[in-house]
């Protein structure tokens, strides 16, 4: 009997504890988000009703169901604030992901062309910033971008600008922050596919007379598409719901959906509306999430 088969049963038992944990703390909570997104706001603790009470018997449950409403969703679709927030989130995510691809690709390409030993070093160098705190890296940029920060000092010293430029609270600062924070997520999957590529393919194209840009565009780039897909999903999905970066670096006149959700929850204490915003965000991200899940599973399990 092969080890695969003998191992199968105890390995299945290994699934029990993490399975129960994930159902309890990942799946079930979504049920609560859905439920509260359908309930009314109330000035109470917790600030919503109806309170679902299973012990109150069947009529109470029926009454609770009758009290469910889609008012919050109606508010989300009718109020410009939310519609704009969703649109802005998508636009920011698309733009930032495109920037990340443009900046990350040459770096990953350079890494893949390093000698093998240096590739490992370069990979560690790209991963290390991912390990250092996210918040601290954003803070580092506030240091640089503030009114009398290093960037303005350098620009003034070089006489490139006459007076300090306003960087903070602009979209430019936000894009710098996003690109900076998510760059490793773009580089690593790109590098993984580029490093596996057979150098002979590019050489053959070159030997047959293709100029370098054609070699890249007709051979290298199409072969790296799986890495492009992984990198794009890995960046796009979390950026849509990003909160910290736009909150600290972008201006407050146009918000992303992660920020409105945060605001509704912590400032307005409107849990039902925050929950509805989360549900809509989840629906928007469902397709990319499913794509990502399939990609990840194929990569890890079909070896």
């Amino acid at each position: 009997m092969s080890a695969r088969r003998i191992f199968a049963r105890p390995a299945r038992f290994a699934a029990i504890a993490p399975y129960v944990w994930m159902v309890l703390f990942f799946l079930v909570p979504f049920g609560f988000v859905l439920k509260i997104s359908l309930s009314q706001t109330a000035i109470a603790q917790p600030p919503y009703e109806p309170v679902f009470d299973l012990t109150a018997g069947w009529t109470a449950i029926r009454a609770a169901f009758a009290a469910l409403s889609i008012d919050n969703f109606r508010l989300l679709t009718s109020d410009d604030l939310y519609v704009f927030a969703y649109l802005r989130s998508l636009i920011v995510a698309v733009t930032a992901t495109a920037l990340l691809l443009l900046i990350g690709y040459p770096i990953a390409y350079g890494m893949a062309r390093l000698p093998k030993r240096w590739q490992a070093v370069a990979m560690v160098l790209v991963i290390v910033p991912f390990w250092t705190s996210f918040l601290i890296r954003i803070y580092a940029w506030i240091n640089i971008l503030q009114h009398d920060g290093l960037l303005n000092q350098i620009l003034l010293a070089l006489n490139l600008v006459g007076e300090p430029v306003v960087w903070l609270s602009t979209d430019t600062a936000m894009y710098i922050g996003i690109v900076y924070s998510y760059l490793p997520f773009m580089i690593l999957p790109l590098y993984a596919t580029l490093a596996k590529m057979e150098p002979a393919l590019e050489e053959a194209a070159g030997d047959l007379g293709a100029p370098p840009w054609q070699v890249f565009w007709l051979v290298t780039f199409p072969l790296s598409l799986p890495g492009v897909g992984a990198g794009v999903l890995l960046c796009f999905i979390p950026i849509v719901g990003e909160f910290v970066i736009p909150d600290l670096l972008a201006g407050s006149n146009s918000l992303m959906i992660g920020q409105t959700l945060w605001l509704e929850f912590f400032t307005n204490k409107d849990w039902p509306v925050a929950s509805s915003a989360a549900i809509v965000l989840l629906v928007v991200l469902l397709l990319p999430l499913l794509l990502y899940e399939r990609l990840q599973r194929r990569q890890l399990e079909e070896r």
């Binding site: 159902v23 703390f25 909570p29 890995l234 719901g241 909160f243 965000l281």
Partner: peptide
């Protein structure tokens, strides 16, 4: 359930756990 949280926006994960 294991792969989704890797990319799930943190505001969603945070809010849903709090409600639980």
């Amino acid at each position: 359930m294991l792969y989704a949280p890797l990319v799930m926006p943190e505001v969603i994960t945070g809010l849903s756990l709090l409600l639980l």
